[in-house]
Design a protein around this nucleic acid. Structure first.
Lengths: 350, 350
DNA sequence: TTGAAAGCGTTACCAT
DNA sequence: ATGGTAACGCTTTCAA
């Protein structure tokens, strides 16, 4: 049984009580607690002793009331289903954010609005100044949040490049470069008819990976060919469907670059069912380097992303903005790494 | 560029200002805002108009200071690596929790302590009464948190059965029943030498799934046999290692029940490498019904868990405890569902 | 039903 | 360097 009446919980010492024990004023205790230099060493020591003895912990609400800071930042995840339930992207990102915040005394408030009405509530909450800063993750093109909160003047950092040009700071993973490296790898393996299964067109991750794919082909002097481009929503099912469309129109395909591992897995199943050998007939490369990549057979070559680092960097930028030490727009792009596995072994031995 | 000085943000209307506009006292506005019945309809309407007009939003810190409630609950995830980075368990759980909280005006504070020192900080923070309630997830046996916070008198609900007997409320998924259903399914398929790859012995999910496995065998009058029991830590690598040990000591195994899909996938790879056909020679069943289950070939039979529902229920219980309407211990066990796929097709057609 | 006033625990300004 | 004191915005008696 847990005691629930807040009145019945031990109240916790106040500044006043610490002051009495230390034989000084409230103001002095406050200075010590907040690390002000304008305190003599003697007094500091006796206050610290009293704090220790009483187990004093500052009351955040009282502090917040006068400082006008909440001591918390919000992480807003607006993801319908896709990525949320498929790969461990968010836990890893949250871990990174949490780590990046832990040096400061900032709490992480997690907001996962479901549906437009909920998003509206969230926008109101955020605009009300209940948090000192905001981390926006997995933004879709039409999301009203960036506008709302920038109008409210709350510092925020976006995870992933915002689709619409904006002055917001953001941290992104080099989707274009990652896609390029994947396609260049396929080209180096002797592939020439390289299809892609792209992501949603309303997310920068989708758009940028497609751009990287096209760039790599252009650099190899291969013509852009819409019949080699298909799209999904990052899920396995959408990958299967896209692969079926591709096989129907371009049976001559000899490689596929999928914008997510799950889509790649879906595509591999379809290829297998169609009697294509991987990688002999068709090479496959995915994106994310999720657990699935080392589970499918053959193992999937994939683009690994520094997700924890992304979270960490987002937190760092936000902290800087919140503390007012860095009001300018920052754009950070983190590099990817291609993890080579069996699914894309080259046609000819190098 | 984002404005960061809190002073420069629009201050937001206060009770005082609303009172002035509505021509009433602060106290009355407070009553209206908090839905007190002791207000005349006339006054209520004019106050509501003023609130609307001024866009008034209560200051949580001020409210919190006097009510001694923070309006927030913490979710503590203490997971070293295992599950956190492998399957989408946490995003789904968080989604469920978030949904269960959204009816009340409670914010979700996410805490992901890394390492013992961080856990200590977390315990202090939680004990300080900065949150109204706590959700504890993925507890390991030696976690000091339950003790600390129950001593501090903060209401909390545990996700997953606590290993040590405790008086805490918890919501669990029927691990024993889920494991039973998996093993019974294997028995029904004509398997008789059924091995298991269990989870960590310091987590109830590990312990209970092992218990369910043993129960099902006992019910079928099959003797318990330690040489058929191996354990991992839910990761794919540990599943492979466990399977290798099993094959070495029990080459006659004709079925494997793994306590996670990733371990099952690891086991399948080892079986394949050993030339065993799945499911003809060895049937395999996993646990979690994660994306991996429908990605491996053959597709993996697995035990599906109502994870969102678990989160939702945890939130519900906590809210009840926080609001003081339900101080007694509650134990909720949610049922699982066996999802049959190719990896465990019966030996003889039924 | 409504209002006046007393806090809630801090910070920060102004003296000293 | 230290202390007194006025906010901060709200809820909650207590009277009226």
């Amino acid at each position: 049984m847990t005691i629930s009446d807040p009145q019945s919980r031990p109240r916790g010492a106040t500044l006043e009580e610490v002051a009495k024990v230390a034989g000084v004023s409230r103001a002095t205790v406050s200075r010590v607690v907040n690390g002000s230099p304008r305190v003599s060493d003697d007094v500091r020591r006796s206050v610290e002793t009293a704090v220790e003895q009483l187990g004093y912990i500052p009351n955040r609400a009282a502090r917040s009331l006068v400082t006008r800071r909440s001591g918390s930042v919000a992480v807003v995840i607006t993801e319908p289903t896709g990525r949320l339930f498929s790969d461990p992207f968010f836990p890893r990102l949250l871990r990174g954010i949490s780590g990046g915040l832990s040096t400061r005394d900032l709490q992480l408030i997690l907001l996962m609005p479901e549906g437009p009405a909920d998003t509206e509530r969230t926008a109101t909450y955020l605009s009300a100044g209940h948090v000192d800063g905001i981390l926006l993750v997995s933004l879709h093109g039409d999301d009203p949040l960036p506008d709302r909160i920038s109008r409210a003047g709350i510092p925020f950092v976006v995870g992933g490049r915002p689709l619409r040009t904006s002055t917001a700071s953001f941290v992104d993973i080099d989707n274009r470069g990652g896609a390029r490296s994947a396609v260049e790898h396929l080209l180096a393996g002797g592939r020439r008819t390289i299809a892609t299964i792209g992501g949603p067109a309303d997310m920068s991750a989708g758009v940028d990976r497609l751009a990287g794919y096209r760039e790599a082909l252009a650099d190899a002097a291969l013509p852009a060919d819409p019949s080699l481009e298909s799209a999904g929503d990052f899920t396995q099912e959408s990958g299967s469907a896209a692969m079926e469309r591709l096989l129907a129109t371009r049976p001559d395909v000899d490689a596929v670059f999928a914008a997510s591992d799950l889509m790649a897995a879906g595509a591999m199943a379809v290829l297998e069912a169609a009697g294509r050998r991987i990688p002999q007939d068709v090479a496959v490369v995915g994106y994310d380097d999720s657990p699935v990549a080392s589970t499918v057979r053959p193992r999937l070559t994939s683009v690994r992303q520094p997700i924890e680092e992304m979270g960490h960097e987002m937190a760092r930028l936000l902290v800087a903005a919140v503390e007012g030490s860095d009001p300018v727009q920052r754009r950070v792009i983190l590099a990817t790494e291609l993890v080579r596995r069996a699914s894309s072994a080259g046609r000819r031995v190098p």
